[in-house]
Write a protein that binds this DNA or RNA. Structure first.
Lengths: 208, 208
DNA sequence: GACGCATGCAAGTAGTTGCTTGCATCACTC
DNA sequence: GAGTGATGCAAGCAACTACTTGCATGCGTC
């Protein structure tokens, strides 16, 4: 069937999913065309519709595949309890920052078009990010009950504030011009800010 | 000329700018159509092109008018030096948060399509937000030189971290479902976090 | 070698898009 | 009252959009 073109390996469906991530991220969801996705995949446009019915169906499949496994791989780490709170925050922030930087183009268009995502797509995203954040929030609640963290601090809010910093940091790091410092410094400073902001006793410094 | 329709006051160009803000924010920049903008303005579509030549020309005019005056009104407040640092941070954060909440739909689509904005549009946005942030950064530098702020803190980074929190907070506040707490609490917690995170001496509490 | 299945190809449909053209109508000014 | 400029209206254009249809081709299996 594959006459002579240099199609990458994998089934047509897999290649379409790979291509869709690229094109959605590059063009935005509504501006991405099925023709261009098919072309990027090295596959005929009809094959796209035969596999995913509609463009929206393709988007849903893209989100499921792009984010769900990422979460599953992390959520069933059962350790996490043994490590120090500061290390838990640092590990969460680092992982969160790097994951966002890896997918930042896709995340940006998702934010930009979040108000026109269907219920299904929104549900997929919630299923991904909520448990991931809840894990750190629980760790913080535990620490607060032990008196390590100031009582007036709201753990869920702290997690939201941290991911806000990682998200905008990843956004700025993408366009290297607008960030006046290296991304790693920004990440470390954000971790420091959170720790100094919530801990009862001053933490040790991360790095300059 | 205006046969009988209930057009709001102002010239056609003004009404088009008002309508463009609404439609760009609602549909996203690339999905917004000139037909819909003209309809929203109660103006014929040709008038749009006669006034702004292209859709991109309209976008540039929208950004100039929507953001530039907002900045000018704030930047030449010459006071700011007299007030306490904590109050300066609080005032900046409050103003920044409210401004973003007011324009959050437009800001969201700008972020989502930032990679396809032309140089002209990007320059407009930079001209708006940079001086606004620099004002607080300078205040922080001054405070750090007086020893009020820990030496290892980078003032420019702190400002970026603060606006990251206000931006994502405004984003979450828009969809009331995804924020598990009132926006004002989030804002106060962010101010507290910043102050506890940077000050040498612990600040007094804002509110629970 | 007959069957089913995935895919390619060519063509088409109905709708939308940014933008243009030609002409008429109003308001205002000298 | 002639000229000027801003606006409306109707029509259209060429390109593009998501999606469909009909038919052919290859691959693996029994």
């Amino acid at each position: 069937m594959n006459t002579s073109s240099q199609s990458p390996p994998g089934t047509a469906a897999e290649r379409l999913l790979d291509a869709a991530v690229v094109v959605f991220a590059r063009e935005g969801i509504s501006k991405a065309t099925t023709r261009e996705i098919a072309k990027e995949a090295g596959v005929n446009e009809v094959t796209l519709f035969r596999n995913f019915q509609t463009k929206q169906g393709l988007l849903a499949a893209v989100l499921e595949r792009a984010f769900l496994p990422t979460l599953a791989g992390d959520a069933n780490e059962p350790e996490g309890k043994a490590v120090k709170l500061e290390e838990a925050v640092r590990a969460f922030a680092t992982e969160d920052f790097e994951r966002k930087r890896r997918n930042i183009a896709l995340m940006r268009v998702l934010v930009g078009e979040s108000h026109r995502l269907g219920e299904h797509e929104s549900a997929i995203l919630a299923r991904i990010f909520h448990p991931w954040k809840e894990r750190l929030a629980n760790r913080l609640r535990e620490a607060r009950s032990k008196g390590l963290i100031r009582q007036e601090v709201d753990p869920a809010m702290v997690v939201d504030q941290l991911v806000a910093m990682t998200f905008v940091g990843a956004l700025r790091a993408e366009k290297s011009g607008v960030m006046g410092y290296p991304p790693e410094k920004y990440l470390n400073a954000s971790i420091d800010l959170i720790l100094h902001g919530i801990l009862v006793r001053r933490p040790k410094r991360t790095s300059k």
